[in-house]
Design a protein around this nucleic acid. Structure first.
Lengths: 257, 257
DNA sequence: TCAAAAGTGTTTAGCATACACCCATGC
DNA sequence: GCATGGGTGTATGCTAAACACTTTTGA
């Protein structure tokens, strides 16, 4: 009972500080071992996975709330983060047997209902450098780890749909904006970059044409160093010319207002 | 006082039936006289204009709420309607001297504050056939009419920003999707269609190349009729091949999942 | 010395642009 | 008959795609 009151109190405090009806969910993309990965959380005492998310403080910009949530899950401060869609179906919380899941959480039913009442959720996607991430669970979850995009299980709520749409948006963005700055280490080789593109788009490309196109954007700087240690011929190392990269991000498309 | 209580009651009922913290705003595009137009509302007893909007019923899908709002403002049932961005800055309601405006509305201050408290707003844009629209004000407004996109005044809240972003999205969409089905009458001429494109993109195009491109999409059907009555040579009439048009909308881009 | 990966340049094709002439209609 | 707008086809250029040989490296 005391436990229940404590929970009620927690919930009341939470409600006082956060906007009701609206939540945020983040699809965090990372790249490692030639695989595109997504960061997922496992709910306490369950085998059920979901996307990291959060709520918006009453005096906080929505984008800031998304950044905060990201920071809490990954430890990263400067990240590429972009809104991609807002999900508002009444039944988006019923795709999966959430009642079972809530039961496993051990929450009293009325508390549980408030935790997952019908919400509008704003979906963001983030691109992060895999190696720098320290995956950190939140209070509802006891595990936070990367999943290969190909091997993502059935997620809670409408989160599988969110991942699909985020990936679709990422692919489209790739076709008119440079991407990679936030997904690769500072120094990388042209084959690294190509592998990233091929992984995101799910298709192979011609090495020579790819290189020509990338260099044509004028956002890469070839270093004097080469990557050593690998078998075979040592590839050159590149890094992004941040200034030009940012400019290319702003231009965004053929049609700028 | 009674008036105030009545308002309080209205507000209480409203809050019981609608999701708090979230609203919807619609940028409704129409096309007439070679001009791209947007439907705006004038607040009661003021000269302040804003976008039509609404709230989401507790048991209503968000898209349905947007459609309902559109229907109420235009009388139209089947409309092209698409979410384009969600606005969540804390200060988005302070771009303009809203306090003055609220004063003019004649609402008691505490009621007024609740009416325009800080919200997340989901922006939709709609393409409608100008001639079929019956502009209809809502309870907060006493005028609803079309404005040339070039002549839109300073709007309340962040609504100018919303119009800009909606237009930008529309322009981008034009570059990889056919548009026109919802903006033109059933039968139209190639010059009509070109004028629509030129108006949206804000640039002129070559007649011959435009026609080649449009016919190349395979979504137009040339009718045997020609448009009569105009001066000069009578142009052919076309209409969209709805089936192929829909298919083209789904394909959406080079990169389909 | 061999296999595997990386560096480099040329040819080709498809699509978008540029451009000019003839025809119909109302005044 | 003439000014205006609409119908049609061809030449050109640029970007993206296709494609092959040489070089380096570790095993």
């Amino acid at each position: 009972m005391e436990c229940k009151n404590e929970l009620q109190q927690l919930l009341a405090d939470f409600k006082a500080n956060h906007m009701p009806s609206v939540s945020i969910d983040c699809v965090i993309f990372g790249f490692h071992d030639g695989q595109l990965k997504v960061l997922l959380l496992r709910w306490k005492n369950t085998d059920d996975w979901c996307l990291p998310g959060g709520r918006i403080h009453k005096q906080e910009n929505m984008d800031a709330a998304a950044h905060r949530s990201l920071r809490e899950r990954t430890g990263l401060h400067e990240i590429f983060l972009q809104q991609f869609h807002t999900f508002g179906d009444v039944n988006r919380y019923r795709h999966y047997s959430q009642i079972e899941t809530l039961a496993k959480l051990g929450l009293p039913e009325d508390v549980a209902k408030q935790v997952v009442s019908r919400d509008i959720s704003v979906g963001y996607y983030a691109l992060v450098e895999f190696a720098n991430v320290v995956p950190t669970p939140d209070i509802f979850t006891d595990e936070c780890r990367w999943w290969d995009i190909q091997q993502i299980p059935a997620l809670l709520f409408d989160h599988n749909e969110m991942v699909s749409l985020a990936l679709k948006t990422l692919r489209r963005q790739l076709s008119y904006q440079p991407i990679g700055y936030n997904l690769l280490p500072e120094k990388f080789t042209m084959p690294d970059l190509q592998q990233l593109y091929e992984t995101i788009l799910g298709q192979t490309m011609d090495r020579r044409n790819f290189q020509k196109r990338m260099l044509g954007y004028g956002i890469l700087k070839r270093l004097d160093e080469r990557k050593i240690g690998g078998a075979h011929k040592s590839p050159y190392l590149y890094r992004f010319d941040k200034e030009k990269y940012e400019k290319a991000l702003e231009t965004e498309s053929l049609f700028t207002t």
